[in-house]
Amino acid sequence: FYLLDDQFAQRKYKHLELYYILIDRTGKTILLQPSGQPMRIFNNPLGIATNTFNFEQQLGRLKAYLDLKPDFENNKLEKFTSRISSGSFNGKKTPPGSYTPSGRLFRAAYYKERIDLAASEKQALNNCWRLLDSVTVPKSSKYQPTYSVYRSAACLSSLTYYFEDYYSFNPIKINLNKEASMNSSVKFYTCDSSVR
């Protein structure tokens, strides 16, 4: 298992701080935090990743914004659970509008609880992209060196990965079928960065 930096990247991103979300076919999700040694792995019942430090602590802070289900707090959510809260937002704070990693995590979790559940993969992708619109960090060299280098979503039933880099307007669609998983060579996918 290898994690790559931007040494061989066509576009250099300078201060690259990527966190990785890994999902298996059952919907179990973990977050891989490579910033520091040893790397840390967290159970991730949210199914959301930002580069927030101390992920476990941030999960605890979600209580200020969501009325969390007891199964969430006890780490006993059933597979493919779409919602982690009761759906009641009475008396809860509205997530901050900042672009800090924690602010984006809280906002994504909050909106994920409120968004209509999709009836199809196309609707789910649309939901994901609209939600990601609210947490995508714009490039601002004078303010901070980091921005949303890319965004992605995955569909477990079709084994499809959707990816869009910062400069693209259309996500690329990659099917992660058995043939693709058996490929022993590196395959590169290009992102169309032009406006259509």
Results as ranks from 00 to 15, higher is better:
residue 178 K to V: 10
residue 57 Q to E: 11
residue 65 Y to P: 02
residue 16 L to S: 07
residue 131 L to A: 04
residue 184 S to Q: 14
residue 172 I to H: 02
residue 157 S to H: 09
residue 98 S to N: 13
residue 2 Y to E: 10
residue 173 K to Y: 09
residue 15 H to S: 14
residue 133 D to M: 08
residue 92 K to I: 03
residue 119 A to R: 15
residue 6 D to C: 08
residue 177 N to T: 03
residue 137 V to M: 07
residue 169 F to A: 11
residue 161 Y to V: 11
residue 104 R to N: 04
residue 38 P to M: 07
residue 76 K to A: 11
residue 151 R to Q: 06
residue 50 T to P: 03
residue 96 P to S: 09
residue 38 P to V: 12
residue 64 A to Y: 06
residue 166 Y to A: 13
residue 165 D to E: 08
residue 189 Y to C: 06
residue 160 T to V: 07
residue 110 Y to E: 03
residue 158 S to A: 06
residue 109 A to C: 10
residue 76 K to I: 09
residue 1 F to I: 15
residue 44 N to S: 05
residue 181 S to H: 09
residue 75 N to T: 11
residue 184 S to G: 13
residue 113 E to V: 05
residue 19 Y to Q: 08
residue 49 A to Y: 01
residue 64 A to D: 15
residue 12 K to R: 11
residue 187 K to V: 11
residue 77 L to M: 13
residue 132 L to N: 02
residue 67 D to R: 05
residue 132 L to K: 03
residue 21 I to R: 07
residue 194 S to E: 10
residue 28 K to M: 12
residue 142 K to E: 13
residue 137 V to P: 00
residue 100 T to M: 05
residue 37 Q to E: 15
residue 91 G to L: 07
residue 179 E to M: 06
residue 58 Q to E: 08
residue 23 I to H: 04
residue 53 F to K: 15
residue 7 Q to D: 14
residue 119 A to P: 01
residue 83 R to A: 12
residue 70 P to M: 03
residue 130 R to A: 15
residue 4 L to S: 13
residue 120 S to V: 10
residue 84 I to E: 00
residue 53 F to Y: 12
residue 52 T to W: 08
residue 178 K to M: 11
residue 69 K to D: 05
residue 12 K to L: 12
residue 84 I to A: 02
residue 20 Y to A: 06
residue 130 R to S: 14
residue 8 F to A: 10
residue 186 V to E: 14
residue 19 Y to R: 09
residue 134 S to V: 12
residue 127 N to E: 03
residue 160 T to G: 03
residue 149 V to S: 05
residue 185 S to K: 15
residue 143 Y to V: 14
residue 181 S to L: 15
residue 36 G to H: 00
residue 55 F to Y: 06
residue 72 F to I: 04
residue 141 S to H: 10
residue 173 K to D: 07
residue 90 N to Y: 10
residue 118 A to N: 02
residue 182 M to D: 11
residue 161 Y to L: 12
residue 140 S to V: 07
residue 34 P to H: 01
residue 5 D to G: 14
residue 186 V to P: 05
residue 59 L to Y: 00
residue 161 Y to A: 06
residue 194 S to M: 11
residue 4 L to V: 13
residue 47 G to L: 02
residue 17 E to M: 12
residue 129 W to G: 05
residue 164 E to Q: 14
residue 72 F to N: 00
residue 155 C to P: 07
residue 176 L to N: 04
residue 34 P to N: 02
residue 121 E to Q: 05
residue 45 P to H: 07
residue 51 N to Q: 05
residue 161 Y to S: 04
residue 166 Y to N: 10
residue 151 R to G: 04
